[in-house]
Design a protein around this nucleic acid. Structure first.
Length: 411
RNA sequence: GCGAUCGUAGCUCAGUUGGUUAGAGCGCCGGUUUGUGGUACCGGAGGUCGCGGGUUCAAGACCCGUCGAUCGCCCCA
């Protein structure tokens, strides 16, 4: 017989189990609870879309589109792509499903996303995000509410210590274009002394030079023109309304004039919740306003704001979460008691208690195995001079008493 | 795409300047223990040391290649 080669997992995918899986679930459950407090309505979205949905909305020259998409031809020779982010698909649905009539619409979802990247700490090829969007709302109040929800989420996850909200504005389209031109002029003047990466960025994405980590660039970032010089008065008013709204809501923030977003569709508000506890991947939640996106997909001009948060990154900040303490462990050491044990276990579960039955493997080992499981009570069927009886051991607490009454006295 | 570090049992790891038959804990299997609990006891199975080549009397250890993982750059959640 030839040896069977076990297929290896795909690079950048993860099999999540135990404490990690509990932390992951805690993040999702907390998000589901908090989004309801703000009446963000749950949506379910397809995991793949026609490639143009992403190619057109993210910007052809962005890394995500240029080299990170999982695209393939289906049997009808149509180019499809596993979603690298949520926003573009939601914008498409807003147009194709007639959600305009529901505007302003607050929606939330979560699930897997796919990017062909080199995996490292807090970064995977299949990763998972929480996502929240407000579509059809042009007022700064929408930005404020969205950020307030993000802030509350992080607090309820218990990870807000050491996480700061960095806030910037990219202005409206005209402001952004003027700023961009000024930046190109500024950096082109010192082109020769910039890092190789930044010389490239000068062509592709000059805004990105602002948050370069290279010392050669940082010197010239300090003297670069800032967005504030180019903001129209409307854009200034808008940003002012966002910041004063955040202050009113009690959401702490700091201005980061170098904060830009990687994707083309962002306008006005841009923000990131950042931590220094995750190595190179400091951004835990990021987003901003994308007023031009829906129009670029062929819809009516529609203002919108949104954010996404990495579930894995949040789960790492949350840390280990213990698996739930059981209410009862039922152990059968003599198979003659098996039917009785099944009945008792099922009765406990139907009554809403978390219970596990140990009735397999070597009978003599079962008790020790069952003992090791964290539980309020342990139910056994020892043989006595009165025949086989049922015994409930426990921690003496309320659950113990209640289970004892239910199981022994049928109360 | 680029760089650094690391690959020893199912898992976490030890293994000295290269030197007999490669170890531990946990887990698994068998036996003892019939226990009002969160490490009881004894025994056993399980490894072509990631893979391929090279150096050497001798390689888990050194060299080259390759695959994989981790962390970083780019980019991003």
């Amino acid at each position: 017989m030839s040896k069977i080669e076990t297929p290896r997992p795909v690079r950048g995918t993860q099999d999540i189990f135990g404490a990690d899986a509990e932390a992951f679930a805690f993040v999702v459950e907390t998000f589901e609870r908090v989004r309801k407090l703000y009446r963000f309505r749950r949506i379910e979205m397809p995991v793949f879309e026609k490639t143009e949905v992403f190619a057109r909305s993210l910007g052809e020259t962005t890394d995500v589109v240029a080299k990170e998409m999982y695209s393939f031809l289906d049997r009808g020779d149509e180019s499809l792509t596993l979603r690298p982010e949520f926003t573009a698909g939601i914008a498409r649905a807003f147009i194709t499903d007639g959600w305009q009539q529901l505007a302003p619409l607050k929606v939330a979802t979560h699930g897997p996303l796919f990017r062909y990247e080199r995996p490292q700490k807090g970064r995977y090829r299949q990763f998972h995000q929480l996502d929240a969007e407000v579509i059809g709302a042009g007022e700064p109040q929408a930005d404020v509410e969205l950020l307030a929800m993000a802030d509350q989420l992080l607090k309820e996850l218990g990870v807000s210590d050491g996480v700061t909200l960095q806030l910037n504005t990219l202005g409206d389209g005209d402001s952004r274009d003027a700023w961009r031109a000024a930046l190109v002029e500024h950096f082109a003047g010192v082109r020769g002394v910039l890092s190789e990466d930044s010389q490239e960025r000068l062509e592709k994405n000059p805004l990105r030079i602002l948050d370069s980590k290279d010392a050669r660039d940082k010197v010239h970032v300090g003297t670069a023109p800032m967005i504030d010089q180019f903001l129209s008065s409307e854009a200034q008013d808008f940003f002012g309304a966002v910041t004063s709204g955040l202050d009113a809501a009690g959401v702490a923030w700091t201005r980061n004039q170098a904060l830009v977003r990687g994707l083309d569709y962002y306008r006005h508000t841009a923000f990131e919740f950042v931590t220094d506890r995750l190595g190179a991947q400091g951004t835990v939640l990021g987003g901003g306003r994308y007023d031009g996106l829906i129009e670029s997909l062929g819809g009516a001009p529609t203002p919108a704001v949104g954010w996404a948060a990495g579930i894995e990154r949040l789960a790492m900040l949350v840390g280990d979460r213990p698996e739930a303490l059981l209410d009862a462990v039922v152990v059968v050491e003599d198979d003659a008691s098996l039917a009785r044990a099944i009945a008792v276990t099922q009765k406990l579960r139907l009554a809403g208690w978390k219970a596990e039955l140990f009735a397999s493997g070597a009978p003599r080992k079962r008790f020790d195995k069952a003992k090791k499981v964290a539980s309020h009570t342990l139910v056994t069927f020892p043989a006595t001079e009165h025949g086989v009886t049922m015994r409930v051991m426990g921690d003496g607490g309320g659950t113990h008493t209640a289970i004892e009454n239910a199981v022994l006295f049928d109360k």
